[in-house]
Design a protein around this nucleic acid. Sequence first.
RNA 1: GGUCCCGUCGUCCAGAGGCCUAGGACGCCGGCCUUUCAAGCCGGAAACGCCGGUUCGAAUCCGGUCGGGACUGCCA
Length: 474
Amino acid sequence: MSVRVRIAPSPTGNLHVGTARAALFNWLYARANGGVFIVRSDDTDQERSTTEYEERILESLRWLGLDWDEGVSVGGPHGSYRQSDRYDRYREVGGQLVASGAAYYDQRPPDELEALRQRAQNEGKHPGHYIRRPKEEVDGGVIRLAIPQGEPVVFDDMIRGTVSFEPRDVDDFVILRTDGIPTYHLASTVDDVDYEITHVARGEDLLPSTPKHILITRGMGAGEPVYAHLPLLFGTDGKKLSKRHDATSLTEFRDAGYLPDAVFNYLCLLGWSVDGETTIFTREDAIAAFDLADVSKNPATFDPDKLEWMNGEYVRAIEPERFVEMVVPFVERSIGRALDESDLARFREISGLVQERTKLLPEAGEQVTFLFGDIDEYDEKSWEKVMTKDGVADILAASSDRLGRLAQWSADAIENELRAMLAEMEIGVGKGLQPMRVAVTGSSVSPPLFESMAVLGQETTVARLDSVRSRLTG
RNA sequence: GGUCCCGUCGUCCAGAGGCCUAGGACGCCGGCCUUUCAAGCCGGAAACGCCGGUUCGAAUCCGGUCGGGACUGCCA
């Protein structure tokens, strides 16, 4: 039987990294086995679900480079792949389960049920012992599944191995609400059966719900899929990844300047590896090596530092011209206006040096703002550190004078001139260049100075040196 | 509280009884290179939670213990 896997996000927010990683592993498994990857919308929470979020989630999946064969927006043999379009089907199954005795109606208030549950527990009976009623007795209310007593529910999880639950530990849970809307357990399970899902790979938080899903599946007379429960993702504080402390949605990463390939690569490494040695790899490499059975059992802590490092690796690997294209919007954002042709030409001259120094795309913009506008304010710390030293004004005056008279304006020529000058003045290169750097770029951290000056132009360079010198000498 | 899951460097991953004086990556520390910052290169500190058992031999198997987590809704 060919592999059919799915990811079923709820459109109640942007795509969460945990969901993204689950999608990734499902996608890898499908691609590794010539299977079908399905995207379904679990939108039974009518209060919070929106089509707006649904579209954004799909966008994020596409951004990550995951394509799907069936599902929302691409269609397939099962309709819209939205649960909100299938309420009739869930009610039908609910009715069948009641008819067969696998489920029953219940309309008693929660506190009464709690008391009955407590009583059963005290007497060592199944929690549903005093709750269950014959199906004729009540009409309306919710429908609960009657957990069959006896044998434990056992299944072989691809990642966890054999997992077993005693029936007495599973509540008679609600499958259909009073308003006729199915709960997650029913809708999700019915869909998995109807769509002929062969492998359910999802977060470990659903492990305790698995016996419920297995029981519904059996109640429908269907065979169970193979389950694979992925380890959970934690934030840097060691707790569950939270929106409060961490970037949690894929859109945030995109907006921060992360590359989809880097995010893809990094997410793969959270719970899985190619061979324990390889850190950077392509999607094809991942597909070739991937198996759900190899996924780690341990929860993984999301490490922003490592992702950032990896993004730098990917940024440096971009084709130079492509890098320019990608970074232009960020440069424009930094300088607050669009780049014209001559700006672009100047940016190209230095973009290689910028690329080496970029981990996140927006940083590239910050590095070249000095090229495209006046320096409104100098970096305070840089000024403090460099400009308050003795002899700075002399260095600026001399460099302005010599660069102003330089016949050929190129990085090499500038370098030769300034090195010769500093040698004559008996000032160390490192010490002597810093004031010029701050004067010309506004900061003690910048792309290499000679190239920066070359691109900036002779006139502007000299003007900036003069401007700072006169500011220093009053 | 109950049920279930998990337990190798700070973090991620490798290790499926001898190849382990435990390997790779991020981060950290030191050095080299160097016009700053990066990048690159070299080196370093850093882990098998604990206790028993099985075995000639255990990070690897078993038991216990401790620790962490998830679930325990007419949310998903």
